[in-house]
Design a binder for these strands. Structure first.
Length: 573
RNA sequence: GCGCCUGUAGCUCAGUCGGAUAGAGCACUCGCCUUCUAAGCGAGUUGUCGCAGGUUCGAUUCCUGCCAGGCGCGCCA
């Protein structure tokens, strides 16, 4: 399918070994049809999905195409497989890559790679370096990735932290898959919450009781104190100006604080988007006109509504309240239209489980704007995170002041462990972080397991250099790497580009973590069985150089994986 | 009531765009540091993949119903 497009900027897109094998199977199919060994009317698949068999006796790759085609071809599955095998083995283009094709079970085709195919994998990793694993799977699609979007009225807490880690990793993964990604943080800088925030700050500064429905944490006193000492005159302003002054000053401090904390957490945003800006320069009016032109806006009871029930929402939503104020939904609608008018094809929203009810109305906005909600909007729902320490759950309560902030979590376990742990679970399952485990240095703590593998390889390579052993693209010697552990390791390294592409398409960065854990395990086993460097005064051989080269390729893939997660790959531990 | 998510080994969880004997860590037992990082490796034990139907050559994976748990259903933001 994509074997003919040589993409210079991205070699792995066009020439990976599995692509070559898949292409060969497609050729075999068409040749067989042309030769009438398969029925001429047979509809062939557009691409072949190869899987890596769990059982290693089943070769390096397996495909079930023969099973799938048996029925339409009105042939026995194994007979289809037999035809395929014959043509596959006769294909000159893959002769150097494939060494054996076997038919097994009900009609699986098990394919074993030739040594040259294995060498090509190592060569690709070493020559592509940091971009090994990148692809054109999402070929240039413009994606707006919005995550966290916390109110600028307090510190980021544990719930935001999951999105900070996962959202950032997803951004990296989407980019690696060739998408053009803009990471965006939506700032709710208008509305009642902001007014309450301002009122709470001023009350704290005045030393009077904070409004019942206002903000109460200890941080409110701190910020109020900061504002008061910097601008004592705020307290003497007329009431309205005074409230505005406290609100704006508090907002600036909180926003700056969130930005600082997130940068420290290695989570970067391209755009900090102000909700307020949606109402500047008649932009909101423009959005309303556009929705009205599509015929989904109406007035009732003095309010302006969007008829979202036209597109599966439970009830219509108010945009402009009867008192003339803009409802939050007005912003949601305008924000979506802004994203689309800024050229984003796909808008990804990362929402907490407590907001999952928004998905339908968000999709309805897209539909009301004349878009395809199932393509233009991609809503990811994240379940809640619990945190345990000393065997007890740390409860999150703003009232009791026991809120766990992102910063506190990082102080407890560090950025690497926090990010890694938050990313390694699918977001739609609730998760529990155990602080004690995250501080431990054992197999229980996967981030150390993976980082240790990287550090271990770096140590071996340092020793290799000390011994004057050269390794690299010209020292692959794939024909010498015949141990099962070596084959298994190479096979895992070859998987990486597909894992990245899959994680991007499914929006599941945790797949990268699970992959790299498996890779680390395979490396540790290789290391236990295959001595890399010469012992004692033993002379260095090509096998030593070949293994050192394989180590170097493995370190590259582990480092690339961790880079996608925003986790460091230490050279020493 | 309606909607979303979850239910896999004693525990914490992977896996599932349908595939060949269902995986990892923890826990438990026993081995491996006189040469590359033992933060490691190896061996052993553990399953009605919530329950019941359906589609299929094949279902833990897809569909329907049910059971259990979590969450959400404002002219709040």
């Amino acid at each position: 399918m994509n074997t003919t497009d040589a993409d210079v900027s991205n070699p792995s897109a066009g020439a990976s070994v599995s692509d070559q094998v898949g292409g060969a199977i497609l050729r075999a199919l068409s040749l067989a049809v042309a030769a009438q060994e398969l029925p001429s009317g047979l509809v062939l698949p557009s691409q072949i999905t190869l899987e890596r068999p769990k059982n290693r006796d089943h070769g390096d790759y397996a495909t079930s195409v023969a099973l799938a085609l048996a029925k339409p071809a009105e042939m026995a599955p194994r007979a289809v497989a037999e035809v395929l095998r014959t043509y596959l083995l006769a294909d000159h283009e893959v002769k150097s890559v494939i060494s054996a094709v076997e038919i097994a079970g009900p009609g699986f085709l098990n394919i074993t790679l030739a040594r040259a195919g294995q060498g090509a994998i190592i060569a690709a990793i070493l020559s592509e370096g940091e971009i090994y694993g990148h692809s054109r799977a999402l070929g240039g699609v413009k994606i707006n990735l919005e995550f966290i979007s916390a109110n600028p009225t307090g510190p980021l807490h544990l719930g935001h932290t999951r999105w900070a880690a996962v959202g950032d990793a997803l951004g990296r993964v989407l980019s690696a898959a060739g998408a053009e990604v803009t990471r965006e943080f939506y700032i709710n800088d208008r509305g009642n919450q902001m007014e309450l925030f301002g009122a709470s700050l001023r009350a704290a500064a005045q030393g009077v009781a904070v409004p019942e429905d206002g903000y109460h944490g200890e941080y409110i006193n701190e910020i109020a104190g900061q504002i008061k000492s910097a601008h004592p005159e705020y307290l003497t302003l007329p009431d309205v100006q005074s409230l505005d002054a406290f609100r704006d000053a508090g907002y600036a401090l909180q926003l700056a604080d969130q930005q600082r904390v997130l940068e420290g957490f290695r989570t970067h945003f391209d755009i900090w988007f102000s909700e307020k800006s949606l109402y500047e320069n008649d932009f909101f009016k423009h959005c309303l006109d556009r929705l009205r032109a599509q015929g989904h806006v109406y007035e009732e009871g003095g309010a302006t509504w969007l008829r979202t029930t036209d597109f599966g929402d439970d009830k219509d939503r108010v945009m402009i309240k009867s008192d003339g104020a803009f409802a939050y939904f007005a912003s949601d609608s305008a924000y979506y239209i802004s994203k689309r008018e800024r050229g984003f094809e796909i808008c990804i929203y990362m929402l907490g489980a407590d907001h999952h009810g928004y998905v339908n109305r968000l999709k309805a906005i897209a539909a009301c704007a004349g878009d395809d909600p199932n393509y233009n909007i991609d809503a990811l729902i994240g379940q809640l995170v619990k945190i345990m320490e000393n065997g007890e759950e740390l409860k999150l309560s703003k009232r009791a002041g026991t809120i766990i902030t992102l910063e506190e979590l990082v102080e407890k376990v560090g950025v690497d462990a926090a990010r890694y742990t938050l990313i390694r679970y699918p977001v739609d399952t609730p998760m529990v972080m155990d602080v004690d485990v995250l501080r431990s240095r054992t197999n229980e703590n996967p981030v150390y397991y993976v980082q240790y593998a990287h550090a271990r390889i770096c140590a071996v390579l340092r020793n290799a250099s000390d011994l004057g052993i050269t390794y690299g693209v010209d020292q692959i010697h794939a024909e010498l790497l015949e141990n099962d552990r070596e084959r298994e390791l190479i096979g895992a390294l070859a998987e990486f580009p597909r894992v990245v592409a899959g994680a991007a398409e499914l929006r599941e960065p945790h797949r990268i973590a699970r992959y790299v854990e498996e890779l680390a395990g395979i490396y540790h086993r290789f290391y236990a069985d295959c001595r890399v460097l010469p012992m004692g005064d033993e002379a260095a051989t090509d096998l030593h150089r070949a293994r050192a080269t394989l180590c170097s390729a493995t370190a590259r893939v582990i480092a690339n994986s961790l880079a996608l997660l925003g986790v460091s790959a230490p050279e020493k531990m």
